[in-house]
């Protein structure tokens, strides 16, 4: 089926699913996200097992964590998830310019989140909470840092996709890439929901 050869040169309704390759890409990405779930599951379990192993004199989670900073980071990432939804909707409505603008907003918010996290880690190290301070600190940095690395990768990835759309336009080849990047971004947000719940809020409770 040559779904992308439209008479008027317009893109099909859902360009990411117009070709078999595009559909396969979306399905394979879901399976990849299943694997990512396992990866984060193991990091979460390591953190849960070690979160009370602070050692003598080292800062505890109650002393370290500041809820306003975490709330700000949460709000930024949540908003960026919404803007990436708007980007996909703009794509479905064939509004390339709006799509690019929403993607740029998403990337900026992602970079803002990263900035907050870098500041946070810098602050913790100054409070005597280094990577090798305690089992708690090692598992904390591994889990939260892995999520941060995912955000950094997403910022880079979506940034490159914006450049590619500028160069090649929106078509049935580039559309699945953008759709899949949007899924990735939502997944990062979903992982953060568990991080702020399990690491920060439960860490504050005890």
């Amino acid at each position: 089926m040559s779904a992308h050869s439209h008479v008027d040169g317009q893109l099909p309704h859902e360009p990411e699913k117009a070709t078999l390759e595009g559909r396969n890409k979306v399905l394979a990405f879901w399976l990849f996200l299943g694997g990512e779930t396992v990866l984060f599951g193991t990091l979460f379990s390591a953190f849960l097992a070690l979160r009370h192993q602070v050692g003598d004199g080292n800062p505890t989670s109650q002393e370290l964590f500041q809820l306003p900073l975490v709330a700000a980071a949460t709000f930024i990432l949540l908003t960026s998830s919404l803007t990436s939804v708007f980007a996909i909707q703009a794509m479905h409505n064939n509004k390339v310019k709006a799509m690019i603008n929403w993607l740029i907003v998403t990337v900026i918010l992602g970079a803002g989140f990263l900035g907050l996290e870098i500041y946070e880690f810098y602050h913790y190290v100054h409070e005597g909470h280094g990577f090798t301070t305690s089992a708690f600190s090692s598992s904390f940095y591994t889990l939260v840092g892995f999520h941060g690395a995912h955000v950094a990768f997403g910022v880079l990835w979506i940034g490159l996709l914006i450049a590619q759309v500028f160069k090649k336009g929106l078509n049935t080849v580039t559309a699945p890439k953008i759709y899949v990047a949007g899924m990735y971004w939502h997944f990062i947000d979903v992982v953060w929901v568990f991080i702020f719940t399990v690491v920060y809020l439960m860490g504050k409770v005890g």
């Binding site: 879901w30 399976l31 996200l33 299943g34 694997g35 990512e36 779930t37 396992v38 984060f40 599951g41 193991t42 979460f44 379990s45 390591a46 849960l48 097992a49």
Partner: peptide
């Protein structure tokens, strides 16, 4: 796919 991942992850968390 996701539920398979969740199942393994949940088992790990229960173990921990």
């Amino acid at each position: 796919g996701i539920l398979t991942g969740v199942f393994v992850a949940f088992t790990c968390v229960l173990m921990a």
